[in-house]
Design a protein around this nucleic acid. Structure first.
Length: 271
DNA sequence: ATGGTTGTCATACAA
């Protein structure tokens, strides 16, 4: 069977529902992972997703900020929402696919929304940057606590870091900009490699190709300027590496009506 | 060096 998983920082799931619906009807991924839903659980558009076939849902949200959701056509059993850095701020949601999810049974999907980190890349003067670094340290400890029963696993989400030189439009110019500073890029790359995660996007689109998943709202013409960053990621546990079939970055979504500043990223596995 | 935009909720603040 094929398993398709999409990750998308949606920047308000309620405002953006029309384009999410268009995307799901066209692409039909098995699982959609959203970040920045900005919606408390009692106002999450659960029935709208059910009407599209996404019957199995796990989400946590806050009013106006953060929030993650996993919407699935396949059934899942376990679910978990970790309190990263000890905060109940809705930045993680995982599900484990059920025995009747056929060959995908037992795969755990972790959906993360790493803090953006504010403007000043100095943890001493900027609490938000300190939080981002603490969050990465938490992720590192959590990866270290994974056991054979934690796998197979897929980690997706808005990690708010562009780790490689060709993950940004201008490496030198962004070295001091939060999302591409050495402390962030080195910490993320070490965390990924230390725990054996496979960077699915870069497997199919290796450096030096420039690959972006986010374009700022502040550009007059995002497409002409093309000043993007690769902030959204899909990581596979080592056992899933050989199953990776295809990755798609749906760049056209940045040009849709009332777009998110992030575009959907889909991976397909042949199980 | 600076400001540029968007979303939530209706004012600053986060991104």
């Amino acid at each position: 069977m094929n398993l398709a998983i999409t990750t998308w920082n949606i920047n308000s799931v309620r405002l953006r529902f029309p384009i999410v619906k268009d995307f799901l009807e066209a692409e039909r991924p098995d699982i959609l992972c959203l970040q920045e839903t900005k919606t408390p659980d009692d106002r999450f558009p659960a029935n709208d997703f059910k009407a599209l076939g996404y019957l199995h849902q796990a989400f946590v949200g806050n009013k106006g900020y953060n929030g993650v959701a996993v919407l699935s056509r396949l059934p899942f059993t376990a679910r978990d929402a970790m309190q990263m850095c000890g905060r109940a701020d809705a930045r993680h949601q995982s599900v484990t696919l059920a025995p009747d999810a056929r060959k995908a049974a037992g795969i755990t999907i972790h959906n993360f929304y790493v803090p953006a980190g504010g403007d000043e890349p100095d943890p001493v003067v900027n609490d938000k940057f300190a939080h981002k670094l603490a969050f990465l340290a938490d992720m590192d400890r959590w990866c270290g606590s994974m056991t054979p029963t934690s796998r197979p696993a897929i980690l997706v989400g808005d990690l708010n870091i562009a780790p490689y030189e060709t993950d940004v439009w201008n490496h030198k110019q962004l070295l001091g900009v939060v999302s591409h500073t050495p402390i962030e890029t080195q910490t993320l790359e070490k965390l990924r490699a230390d725990h054996g995660w496979i960077d699915a996007i870069r497997t199919h689109r290796p450096e030096p190709e420039r690959v972006y998943t986010w374009w700022s709202y502040r550009a007059q013409d995002w497409k002409a300027a093309d000043r993007g960053r690769r902030l959204d990621h899909v990581w596979l546990s080592p056992d899933l590496g050989p199953k990776l079939q295809m990755t798609s970055i749906h760049k056209q979504a940045r040009g849709w009506d009332r777009p998110s500043d992030h575009v959907p990223v889909t991976v397909r596995l042949a199980l």
